[in-house]
Structure formats: C-alpha cells, structure tokens
Design a protein around this nucleic acid. Structure first.
Lengths: 259, 259
DNA sequence: CGGCGGCTTGATTCGAGTCAAGAACCGTGG
DNA sequence: CCACGGTTCTTGACTCGAATCAAGCCGCCG
C-alpha cells in the first residue's frame, strides 16, 4: 500500500498537502494520502492526460503544470469546464461513477507532470481511514462549486466581466498552491474556450483590459498588473473556492469608487 | 438512529430508492438509508427550502414536487443551476463543506414535501456502512455532471437547442422517478432563469417549438407532444444522467432525417 | 370586480459571432 | 544563421441572435 516503487520528491506534493489541509485533514492523514501517490511522468502541452472513456485502475493527480477538463463538441469546438493545477485530481469522476461513459477528458495546456494513486491502494486507505473519504468527497464538491461559478459566469455577464472573473479565479487558485506570478500561462484560445467567447472577441476583451491598465501591454502573455481593478471589474467573490488562507485577499469587493 | 418518530409512507421514498439503486446500493443498504429519513412537512411554491447560509444539522431530501438550486444575482436576477425532483438531496454541499459561506439556495417551484436526515444519524450510518459514503459521493458527483451539462448547454448553443436540451433533461429525470406526464410544471420564468435566456426570448423560443409541433399549443402549460423531434433538436445525449434503465430511450440520437 | 403574476407581441439596440486577411512569434531543419 | 510552416494574436467589416423597453393580454385569486 505504500508508494515505495516510485518515490516522489516532497516538494511535488506540497500543493496536494496544502489543498487537503484546507479540506480538513490532519498531519497523519496527510502523510497517508501522500504515501499513496506514485510518480507517473510527464505529459507535453497539448496532449490528453485523461482521454474520454471509462476504464481506469488509478486516480490521476497533477503535480505540475496547467491542465483543463474539457469536452469536444459536435462542431469540433472545445468546451473547457475548468482549469486544473498542481494538487488537483483529474479523474475522480471515473472512480466514483465508473460505469458511465464519460465524454469528459483532461488535456495538458502546458507541459505537466503527473502522478497516480492505484484504486487498490485508495480503497484500502479509505476503509482504514474513513476520514479520507470525506476529504475526497469534499475535493470533488469543490470542483462542482467551480462548475457552478463558471455556469453563473457564462450566463448573463458581459465579456469584460466574464474574462475578469475567470482570470481572478486562476490567480487565486495559483496563489493557493504557492504560485504568485502575475502571468497566467494560458493562450487566448484556452481562455476563449473556457469563457465561452470566440477567440476574436476574447482578444478584443483582453485589449480592453490592457487599455484599462489591468493587463500588461506586452502581447503574447497575459500578465495582471492591477489586481484590485480586475477584482472590481469581475465583482469577484472567491469564497466558493474554499481557501481560508486567501480569503482576506479575495473575498472582499473593493469599493466601487475605482470603476 | 432509526426514523421512528416520524415514519414516512413507503411510497414517498420510492424515488430515493430508485435513485440509490442505480448508484450501486443493494437492498439492505437501501433499507438503512430509508430508515434514516424523517418527515419534515411541506413547502409552498415560491418559498425557499434551503436559504443561503451555512448552518444546518440535517440533510434535506425532496419527497415531492419540483425545486431548484439557484443564486440571486447582484442585479436581482436569479440564476438557476439545476432543477430537483423527488429523491434528490438539496443540501449535500452544506454537509460536505460546512465552513463555506454558501450563497446557493434552494427554492420550491411547485408545492413540495420534504424530509430530513439528521447529520448525527447520517454519520453513524456512514461509519457503520462505508458503502453508503460512496453512494452519497456518487449522488453529488451526478449533480456535478448535470452542472457540466448545463454549462455546456449555456455556451455556444442557440436558444432553440438550449431550451430543447433543458426540456429533455427534465423529461428524462422525471421518468426516472416514475413521472411519465409530458407536462413540465415550470413557468417560463423558471425555464428562462435556467437556460440563461431572457423571458421574452424564451417565450419566443417556446413558440418556435410549438409551431414545430414539438410542444402543445395550449398556452400556460409546457407539454411535450413530439419527444423524438425534441431530442433531435436538442441533440440530447442523456448518458450524463446515469440512468441505465432509461438509456435505450434517451441515449441514442434519432437519425437526422427527421429534422 | 380589481389586481397581480405570468404570458405574448412589436420595435429597437447592441454585444458577440463570423469571415477574412494580415502580423508576430516559435520551433525546426537546411 | 536564416528560411519555413504552423500556431497564436490582431484588426476590420459585416451579420445576427438575443437583450431590452414598452405595452397589452390572459387567467387566477382574493
């Protein structure tokens, strides 16, 4: 039941540990979860980490990089449901609802490194330490929380606010795992597919944010230089992300005088 | 741990049992779940079943009627995330993520009757019968599945298909719990808030479906009279609903010659 | 009978999609 | 080192679906 065959650098597991700590696990339980994880290797940007389909013998965990849950549309388009970062599990749904024919897939958007937890090891751990079950349940509930927010965001909000909201979420989630860079390593295509906007319009929206001084003007990267303003435009309220550590930074709406 | 104080008619629990059977529970476990349920009473259409906020000492279960998960928007609007039917739990999220400040609420759209499961009883049952935990996890995963589908549906699809898709889901979910009526007891306002369309435009879309012969022409009710055509317009694929019993009816896209 | 919530209709506006073409950037191989 | 092809990004012109505004209608309930 221990992950000895493929030990993992402790550092790679920091995001996972941070996340599961906020989900209510204590030190010993965190050790246990960490001990289940086995290294799996790297996936190049653009490739699928999880294909559509439903057979699997292990959970997959993102250790590094950015990935997305998505679905291919009839017309060839791509709907991105959510982005994923280090510490996120990519395929809970296959473990929990194995008999379903899942049309969801997970794609690496940057080069990623991934790890796995064998179902066998997971099950043993779950029966021995029932509290883990609740933590995993919580983790997937959080995903659902994010879906709801994306759903909300997609309906009824103008493009500027939509994009701002999406960017806020990414910044917050990256900070939660210790990534404080203001650069969001996604292409405009990725953002468009996640925001439900056409690439052309997304591009124009980005330019609007640039000219508002919210994003840096150097093309070819998305760099947030005025976070307060961004939060304001987005009317972002990050509480759905369940990040107590970051609440003070994201929860409060800056007063509306700025915009 | 038994629900003796407020016994419930067996019939009221049929939808719950049907649902949890498809989630993998066997007879004895179903008995146990059923035994936890205590009657709570009725809620009139329009009132909240679950208010926003995060304190609770019990799960809430819908026994009869239609409800919705929704969120109030800044501008007074209402975003409906999903509809709920008999057998659905309304507030898993409060049990699983109690510390979160939840801005989600649940509203009765028709007169509803509801029941509860005390957290205390639930926890006892979960520790004694770990398989229940997986079933509950599955149930909330299914909700997430529905959110994803709504998210997909809201983006990028024209109003006609959007509405058709939404209606298909409701028909399928109602059938799954034994309601075979072709009438969907929702107002156009409810449908608009769920589809992310304005009431005006939703109304026009309904009229489009009526003149296509998909919906009955008598105003003031939504009655599906040509289900095949509806499925076709929606390009509905109900597999995300995890309803093996109904698959044959909903899974397959009718060939495109009709439309 | 009056009022109110839900439904219907028309006119107008506007945000975002689409089409099309060009520019900047990136990796690769000669 | 540079030429190349393929992404990604940018810009402009045009179209169209859906929101909004406004008003009238219908049916129900008190």
């Amino acid at each position: 039941m221990v992950g000895l065959p493929n030990p993992i650098g402790r550092n790679s597991l920091v995001p996972l540990v941070l996340k599961f700590r906020t989900l209510g696990l204590e030190n010993e339980e965190l050790e246990i979860v960490a001990s289940l994880v086995k290294d799996k290797g790297r996936v190049r940007a653009g490739l699928d980490i999880i294909g559509a389909g439903n057979s699997a013998k292990h959970l997959t965990l993102l250790l590094m990089g950015v990935a997305c849950w998505y679905k291919r549309l009839e017309d060839g388009g791509r709907q991105i449901y959510t982005f994923q970062y280090a510490g996120d599990f990519c395929d809970f749904y296959r473990y929990v609802l194995p008999e379903r024919d899942h049309s969801v897939a997970v794609q690496a958007l940057t080069d990623c490194s991934i790890a796995i937890i064998d179902y066998r090891d997971l099950e043993q751990a779950l029966t021995r330490f029932p509290k883990l079950g609740l933590a995993f349940w919580r983790a997937s509930m959080l995903d659902a929380s994010i879906f709801r927010e994306r759903l909300l965001n997609g309906s009824h909000r103008p493009a500027l606010q939509r994009l701002a909201n999406l960017l806020c979420e990414q910044l917050a989630r990256r900070e939660a795992i210790g990534i404080n860079s203001a650069v969001i390593p996604l292409t405009q295509i990725d953002l468009a597919d996640a925001a439900g906007l056409s690439v052309v319009h997304l591009n124009r929206t980005i330019q609007a944010l640039r000219s508002l001084g919210v994003l840096a003007k150097n093309g070819h990267t998305i760099e947030v230089i005025d976070r307060k303003h961004l939060v304001n435009i987005a009317k972002f309220d990050g509480r759905y992300l369940n990040m107590p550590q970051l609440l003070s930074k994201w929860e409060i709406r800056i007063d509306s005088s700025i915009m």
